[in-house]
Amino acid sequence: MDELQELERIRQEGLERLAEANDAASLEAWRVAYLGRNAPVMQVFSRLGQAPRELRPQIGQSANAVKQALEAAYQEKLEAVRRAALEEELTRQKLDVTLPGRRPFLGRYHIETQTMREILRIFTSMGFQVYSSPDIETDEYNFTYLNIPPHHPARDMWDTFYLTTPGLLLRTHTSPGQIHAMRQFAPEPVRVVLPGMCYRYEQAGARKDIQFTQVELLAVGYDITFADLKGTLQDFADRIFGERLRTRLRPSYFPFTEPSAEMDVECVICHGKGCSVCKGSGWLEIMGCGMVHPVVLQHGGYDPAKFTGFAAGMGPGRIAMLRHAIQDIRSLYENDVRFLEQF
């Protein structure tokens, strides 16, 4: 019976010692002492042959039970110690999460590119193809073909930069692209959106600059009416301003369209209540539009008796100004990083 008592003593002593081991090193020492090759319980196994035969099974079972108990206790303790060590380690690694992060350099698009892309995406999704034409234009393309003959009063509407080369000028609008596109596609129908840089001989101020981008729409086909113009522009306004704002078409005059209209949209800032952006009117003028004038259709190579069309033009710069409450249009091309980095 001595061996059984010895086993019980080993178990108790082992567990007591284990309770005192609280780090990896003392745990390892305990493991070697109580579960290693020379541990007391192992010695019980090796002495088993010397025990009386009838007692051997009982001693063997007990020794196994003690060994398993010690092993289980060891595993449990090991886990606990590791967990505690990890916790301590984690606590030690705690950061001040309010310190600033390390930022990579963020590339950015110019705000005008962002707005232009948005506009083009909307119109291309409606089936308008992007068509580009040059900045340097001839008088004919910029004016005459657009039903603005020399000395016509309508020429007053565009203050123009002329070049020293006779007949050449900086386009005052993207409309010459209408003629280029029509002449390329006629007599097939055409549905294009024309983006580009335009120039006006004007004293630059907060609301107008000598250079600005414009986007123009042109649709020429067999069955294109003022109703299509309204529908297209209403869809555009809904998408670019992201909510259903009221719009209205107000009669206006452009030599290359008839009827001509200005499209006003309910002020995006005050929703029509009146504010400084809309100067109290509740409306913002966002684009000019109209049905393509028969003379322009003819210059483009179409028979006005068979074809009709509409055109519209707007300034992405102006739309960006409205959406971001930009005070001075000249900030667009001054390119101060403190301005650019806000977009």
């Binding site: 193809q129 596609f185 129908p189 294109i224 109703a227 299509d228 309204k230 529908g231 297209t232 209209a261």
Partner: peptide
């Protein structure tokens, strides 16, 4: 102009170029 209805373009889509 406000009394003229709005319509989505119904004319066939021209070839894409």
């Amino acid at each position: 102009f406000d009394r003229i209805p709005a319509r989505r373009l119904a004319d066939p889509l021209p070839s894409l170029q």
